[in-house]
Design a protein around this nucleic acid. Sequence first.
DNA 1: GTAAGTGTTC
Length: 720
Amino acid sequence: MKRGELVQLLETCCSQISISQLHSQFLKVGLADDSFIATKLSSFYANYASIKYARKLFEETPRRTVWLWNSVLRSYCGEREWEETLFLFRQMIIEAVSAEKKPDNFTVSIALKSCAGLHGLRLGRMIHGFAKKEKLDMDMFVGSALIELYSKCGQMNDSGKVFMEYRKPDVVLWTSMVTGYEQNGCPEEALAFFSRMAVSERVIPDPVTLVTAASACAKLSDFKRGSSVHGVVIRQGLDTKLSLANSLLNLYAKTGSIKNAANWFRAMPNKDIISWSSLVACYADNGAGTNALDLFNEMIDKGIKPNSVTVVSALQACAATSNLKEGAKIHSLAVDYGFELDISVATALIDMYMKCLSPENAVDLFKRMPKKDVISWAALLSGYAQNGMANTSMGIFCNMLSEGTRPDAVAMVKILAACSELGILQQAACLHGFVIKTGFNSNVFVGASLIELYAKCSSIDNAENIFKGMTDKDVVTWSSMIAAYGLHGKGEEALKLFHHMVNNSDVKPNNITFLSVLSACSHAGLIKEGIDMFNMMLNEFQLKPNAEHYGIMVDLLGRMGELDMAMDIINHMPVPVEPHVWGALLGACRIHQNMKMGEIAAMNLFSLDPDHAGYYILLSNIYAVDENWHNVAKLRRVVKENRLKKIQGQSVVEVKNEAHSFVAADRLHAESDLTYEVLRKLEANMREECCVPQVQIEEILQAPVKGVQNLKSQSRSSPV
DNA sequence: GTAAGTGTTC
């Protein structure tokens, strides 16, 4: 066969089999090193077959043209093999002795894209310099790769400089800028660019631009601007395009109600795994864990294979609803699909097991993970704190540091929260030092956590200093300081700070701020002020109180003996009454010995949360004071027969810079006998002073120590 | 003769 005929055959080849046969034909007639044919073949392999064939062909071709180089570079770049791409690029430069092999605009754009993939700013800048020298930098493809490179490295200024070089940037260049801002956490700037492009410059946005714009609106929770993006999508007849429909679904998920998102999802003519994952995530994020799991199961029943992202969201739903059974089911599903040890899946599993109070499973998984990142470490250490083992959290934090993982702001917040469970000032100060050293002290979330930490370590002065030292105070900072005063019973100070914030700063109070100020009023017994604040929240700031706000109001009124008012609030709550609200009323009934109302609260609690032993015990305490021994016995029997366990509170004391943790009736500590001996002496002293302790030591010691397995006493020296 | 920027997650 002649060369021409073979080339024509090559053009019409459409399967890997036929191209392989043709390839062997070329080899037979000695045409395989014909540079045109080699490039064509390589391009075919890169597009439709495996990268291995392309590479083999490349190696076997003695006369490599720029085209051949480009086509093999493109295959590696397409497979996201950034390092290999750049390795080959370097080879090419080395071999570029003749002008024929000089990298062209195509080569440069691929190399830049690989640098972007690796966040390799230094090499990227070098290649940028090379492109300038070779006068390749005005090519649009090179330009978009440069913008992408600088954006991925967080250098939006440089992206802007590249963009400014073009007199008439095309839609892709504009879009690169929009996505650059959007992915660098600047959705506002992204939308500004988008409107400059679409309105001032009359460049018609394409699907990619619109996806990014919708995503920026989602990040801002800006429903209004999101709707106008949706309008553009409809006007261009693009609303059935899957990627756009998905980004609009995400927009509804992040801005509107669950209902909007669900309706949009059901109306979508085509759905892919991303559509399903988005709605599962939407349910999971918005407190609708059961819906998330239903949807996930619907998907499985329909035979649609979830990916790791879907599984992560479904696991989040299990974690939020403490659904260990479903969580374990999804775990085995992840094993079947082969992504159990995928870093994000494994981390979500750790989080789920920790929140379902099954730390053993979490630790087992963590140990088996081949790769861990800062998020997995953070899940582990905050999980320990959630399971009452804050001491272990501190140790995990040290392990993380010694294994060379740098904490991010989230991990910092979590370790500070774990430390605040311990309430040990010494360790708080150590972590504070670490925060300063690592430069996290300017982060608003870390600052707020420090305020909370010091407040919980009984050092309100330090909390105040942190607060005063924060240059950027946002609503979280103010709320934390208000909460700190509340924790210390300083209701007046909390109110003063609240008013100072409302009158003298630009920061507006939110739901959390009111939670802090209401709880401060409750702790300080400021009943009138609390009611005023609650009304202010409703009327002046038009905020919708949630079950927690109502719980605090019930607590506040209940503590002050206003049980009828508290009951009235419960009866008029516009949101579902959660167990803790009834719990607050029941607690108040115990203080003020109101048996009738206590019974109502308890009955509601028993039906809402039948496994919580604490509520049975609270009611039985009310009966006991009333000497209603018959009912006391009845309740104790229920607890015993249903094997209900009271979640044990763990206490920690600091002795000579060492933290010692213990639980009630704990006899596992090495110095246990001595501790109880001292306690008996103290009790005797109290009796001499005519004080009768509420609970007697012998009573505590008779209590079973079951259910304390993983809370065994531990003593270790300060780790930080 | 090859070609760009985007959507779901811990």
